[in-house]
């Protein structure tokens, strides 16, 4: 049988390099998500604190940065990460598809790859909706609540009005569940990809960190909408 060894292999072109891209961009998302969660929790401190915080995000670094500059830098980085993360994910996904064109009639193995992929897509769809909702269009969803002007004036008003609706909370919680699952595996996976899990102990620790991150994010993000829905925050 003929051998087809490659002539000039490079590390950068391997699937592991793609995974590294995925791990690094993923790690950046985790950082962002944690900051975002911190911000959300400010809702509990009341309208003024929350609105000031939201404003502060935009004025941070002024005058060195223009109004909203940091936020834009962050947004650009996030967008870049998103492209990298999704590119790596879809490339690996399609590779996996062509690596096994005939499927098994019966298969009983871990489903986490499918979770990551479809879960990832679900999260992406949610993020699009989430951005339209809170950042880009800011539509009036709660017709019994404040009007469009009030919403645009105060982020706090907008958030509270939205989460007084049970179905909004539900969508949000579903997205959170998807995110939680994604993080539980993703945070472990990133550590594995970065080579931090070379002993059984380290692997157990990495799994623990993954689960902990997921739990933290789910709980942290779930508190504000639930508090609003149950009237603890008005």
């Amino acid at each position: 049988m003929a051998t087809t060894t490659l002539s000039a292999p490079t590390a950068r072109k391997t699937t592991i390099a793609l995974k590294l891209l995925m791990a690094v961009t993923g790690a950046f998302f985790v950082l962002y998500v944690l900051l975002h969660m911190y911000g959300n929790l400010k809702v509990l401190a009341g309208q003024e604190a929350f609105d000031t915080y939201a404003h502060h995000l935009r004025t941070f670094g002024e005058p060195m940065l223009p109004y909203g500059g940091l936020l834009w830098i962050f947004r650009i980085l996030l967008l870049g990460s998103l492209i990298g993360h999704a590119y790596a994910a879809f490339t690996l996904w399609s590779r996996a598809g062509s690596a096994r064109k005939t499927k098994y009639a019966v298969l009983k193995t871990a489903a986490s790859a499918q979770w990551m992929r479809w879960g990832g897509v679900a999260i992406l769809l949610f993020v699009v909706w989430h951005l339209i909702h809170f950042t880009i269009v800011k539509p009036v969803i709660n017709v019994d609540g404040p009007d469009a002007a009030a919403i645009k004036a105060s982020p706090y008003t907008m958030v509270v009005a939205s989460f007084q609706l049970w179905w909004m909370v539900l969508i949000y919680l579903l997205a959170l569940a998807a995110l939680g699952l994604h993080l539980a595996h993703g945070v472990f996976s990133a550590q594995q990809t970065l080579g931090f899990t070379q002993t059984p102990k380290a692997r157990a620790r990495a799994k623990g960190i993954g689960n902990l991150t997921a739990a933290l994010v789910v709980v942290g993000f779930a508190i504000p909408p639930l508090s609003i829905l149950f009237g603890l925050v008005k």
């Binding site: 592991i16 590779r95 996996a96 193995t109 986490s112 996976s189 594995q192």
Partner: peptide, 8 residues
């Protein structure tokens, strides 16, 4: 295929 650390 590429690895996605599923552990299967």
């Amino acid at each position: 295929g590429g690895c996605t650390n599923t552990g299967a």
